[in-house]
Design a protein around this nucleic acid. Structure first.
Length: 193
DNA sequence: ACGATGATGAAC
DNA sequence: TTCATCATCGTA
């Protein structure tokens, strides 16, 4: 066990985002997640992909948020502490990956809609073998799913904000610019890594 | 434009 | 217990 190997390991651990990072307003965390890396441990292999698209679901007033109608068995994780995974099943076949934000008892989470080459929330969960067994787990190595800061610079100009997808039923809340998308041509950042 | 496919939550 | 709905995707 060389000193060198230990240093490499420690550097790696240092850039894993801790739950404290997520204990801030959903919109603030959403913006800062662009350019971070979602990292998934699958058996012996580790896959990392840059987060390119995120949506915020912010509190019980937000009519598009699952917590809008109160606490239920499904959305209970959203009412828990930040930095835990909220994974649910929709349309009879798709898993959606969310990370809880903000203080305990304030229900908010971010839906991760795009990472790396995978565009679409159901495509990335399928590719990274993410399902309900992760629901309620804390982000980190122990859960096999975490987020790393790899020091990719994301200028404001590279970010687009739009209404959220597939929530037309939420009336005026559907129009709010709670979707954050990273411009495609940020590939220079990965190349420089 | 539509069907797949099953959990969820609200109503009865 | 029933029923409409659903933070989607692939095919047409």
């Amino acid at each position: 066990m060389s000193t060198n190997a230990d240093n490499v390991y420690n550097l790696d651990v240092a850039r894993i985002l801790s739950p404290a990072f997520f204990n801030r307003p959903a919109l603030t965390v959403a913006r800062s997640l662009l350019g971070k890396y979602l990292v998934r441990r699958i058996g012996r292999k580790t896959v990392a992909a840059m987060i390119t698209e995120v949506e915020a679901y912010d509190g019980h007033l937000d009519k598009a948020c699952h917590a809008h109608r109160g606490k239920t068995p499904r959305n209970a994780v959203m009412f828990g502490p930040a930095g835990h995974w909220y994974v649910y099943f929709v349309y009879g076949m798709h898993w959606m990956l969310n990370i809880v934000t903000g203080p305990k008892d304030y229900p908010a989470a971010l839906l991760i809609r795009g990472v790396g080459k995978w565009n679409g929330p159901a495509k990335l969960t399928k590719a990274l073998k993410i399902n309900g067994s992760l629901n309620g787990k804390m982000t980190g190595r122990k859960s096999g799913l975490w987020i790393e800061d790899r020091r990719v610079e994301v200028p404001e100009k590279s970010i687009r904000r739009t209404p959220r997808i597939g929530v037309a039923y939420a009336k005026e809340w559907a129009r709010k610019p709670y979707r954050f998308v990273l411009a495609r041509n940020l590939d220079f950042a990965t190349a420089a890594d």
